[in-house]
Structures are given as C-alpha cells and as structure tokens.
C-alpha cells in the first residue's frame, strides 16, 4: 500500500493533469490552440500510478494522448502548455506540438502521432538499458487500439526472448476514435501477451492504488532482470477522441448515460474519498491542493500565452546535428 504521503502526491498529480487539460479544452474551444488536441481526462490514475513507480532515469513512451504521461513523469506544465500553443518557449520549441511532447531529461522519449509508434521505441530503450546494465526500466503506454498493430506482437516476442526490462501498459479506454473497441478487438488483449509466457495483470485503471501496485510488481521484475510484463488498465475516455470531435461528427457513437456512469467512477474522486475516509486529508487540505494546482495551471497558461511564436530559423537549424542543409 502506498504511504499517505505517496497517495497525496499522486492525488495532486492527477488533479494537475485534470485541471491542465480542462484548461486546454477551454482554450481549444476559444480557438487558441492549433492542430489536434487529444485529452486524457478520466485516465489520470493510469499514468500517475505507473509513473509513481519510476524515477527520472527510467524511460516512457507515450501516444497521441500524451499530456497525462508527460506530466505524470515529471514534465514541466509550463513547457508543455507552451508547446501545445506552438511557442518557442515550449518543451520542443514549437516543433512538435500536442502530439509530440518529449523531455529526455525526465525520461520522456515522446508522445507519438502514429498509433503503436511508441511500443517498439520503449522496447529499444529497454534493450539499451539491458546492455548498459544500469537498472533502468522502460514503460510503453499505448491504447487498446494500438494492440491491433502488428508491432505489438513483434515486440512481445523479442522482449520476452531477450528478457528486456520493459512494461507494456495498455490503456483500455473503450474507444478507437469513434469505434467502440470491442467491435474491432478479438479476444482479450492480455491473452496476446500471455501467449508469449509474459506475466500479465488486468487492473481497474480508475483505481490508482491498484495501478500503482501492479506497476510496482512489473517494474521490480524488470529491474531485477525478470524481463517484460504486460498490464492492461481498464478505464474510460471521458472527453471526445479529440477536441474537434463535436465538429467532426454528425451522429453519436456512445450514450451520455454511459459517460455519466464512468464519471461516477472518476479516479480523482475515488482517491479523494479514500483519503477522506482514511483521515489523511480534510476539506481544508484538499482546498490547499486545489489552489496549488490551479496556481500551476494559471502560471502555465500565462507562460504559454506570453511566449514568442516558434523561431523560423529552427526549421532549418534542426535538420542535422551541427550542420545546416
């Protein structure tokens, strides 16, 4: 069981992700954000529960829905916000945008625009860690939709064969864009990993403690030379696939009642209730956390808004190392 201090810290991180993304949603609606913005609202317990078991030296790869992973792994909210706004003060100086936030200094190898694009990269980072023998671990976050890409099978095989320190973290959030996952997924995704003899866990992805515990076991196994593990976290994407969804879709692919039902299982509310019941935090304490978080969000939004647009010179300077084309 995590300590009270660990629980409070996870609570604050989950709340930070939630409030940052609520802000992004509002900013998108106000026409301030360029491009495609995919929000993680409802899934915060997964990123936070897993990353609480990692250090800055461990690696993660993420997806198009990457803000939560970035913040959970210790990425800077200001630099992330500015990146999404396309500013030169962004973590990638505006070259990547929402789908490509990365911070190598925090072990964040990057969000990814290609579904399943990060799975093999994390496996490669684990390969490097194995060769270096430095005890680092890599976690590949990916969606249930990504599990239908061939590269998933290839990496399950090679990582098991070579005993690589990688954790495959599948977030089953019930949708592949606008298509319900069960209509495009045969069998249980965990059975695919089981077929390779890989240790598997299927957890309630809206219960941060359950995620934390399963991730702890998998990370410990990887660090100790026990090879890869697979975790499937059952969760739900509360927001649309992307913020432009209402404009894109004519019909609807899910019922409001279903969303409501999952709102009642909100991972942040659940942790809050748990902390209250355990007497670990009272209303004043929660208010204090809320105000710290909203301060951080305000600061990030102001930082993003004030930043200069991306630098045109960079478009060429970045092409090759130390050499302009």
């Amino acid at each position: 069981m995590p300590t009270t201090e660990q629980l409070l810290s996870m609570y604050e991180r989950m709340l930070l992700i939630r409030r940052m993304e609520e802000r992004l949603s509002a900013d998108y609606a106000a026409g301030k954000l360029p491009g495609a913005v995919h929000l993680y609202i409802g899934q915060e317990a997964v990123a936070v529960g897993v990353c609480a078991q990692l250090t800055d030296r461990d690696w993660i790869t993420s997806t198009h829905r990457g803000h939560g992973h970035f913040l959970a792994k210790g990425g800077d909210p200001k630099a992330m916000m500015a990146e999404i706004w396309g500013k030169r003060t962004g973590i990638c100086r505006g070259m990547g945008g929402s789908m490509h936030v990365a911070d190598l200094s925090k072990g964040i190898l990057g969000a990814n625009g290609i579904v399943a694009g990060g799975i093999a990269i994390a496996t490669g980072a684990a390969f490097g860690a194995r060769l270096d023998g430095d005890g680092r671990v890599a976690v590949a976050f990916f969606g249930d939709g990504a599990a239908n890409q061939g590269v998933f099978m290839e990496t399950l095989n090679v990582s098991t064969l070579w005993g690589l320190p990688v954790v495959f973290l599948c977030e089953y959030n019930h949708f592949c864009e606008f298509t319900p996952s069960e209509t495009v997924t045969a069998g249980q995704i965990s059975d695919r990993a089981r077929a390779f003899g890989m240790p598997c866990a299927v957890v309630d992805g809206n219960d941060v403690v359950e995620v934390w515990r399963a991730a702890g076991e998998a990370v410990e196994r990887a660090r100790g030379g026990g090879g890869p593990s697979f975790i499937e976290a059952k969760t739900y994407r509360i927001q649309g696939h992307l913020e432009a969804e209402a404009v894109i879709l004519d019909g609807k692919y899910r019922e409001e009642a279903e969303i409501e039902e999952w709102r009642r299982r909100d991972p942040i509310d659940r942790l809050r209730e748990h902390l209250s019941a355990a007497g670990a935090c009272d209303d004043d304490g929660f208010a204090e956390i809320e105000s710290r978080v909203s301060g951080a969000v305000e600061e990030a939004a102001a930082f993003a808004a004030e930043g200069e647009p991306a630098d045109p010179e960079l478009a060429f300077d970045l092409m090759f190392v130390g050499q302009r084309p």
Binding site: P34, G35, G86, K87, G94, M95, G96, G97, S98, M99, H100, P309, A310, P312, L314, A315, F316, L318, M319, P325
Partner: peptide, 16 residues
Amino acid sequence: TPHIPLPSASALEDLA
C-alpha cells in the same frame, strides 16, 4: 516545401 519535416507551429508550417 523545403527538405524538412513539417513543423507543427502555425507560423512555421505556413512558411514551409
């Protein structure tokens, strides 16, 4: 378009 990947920032994409 110059021989570069397309940057995401609006102004840079327009420039490219």
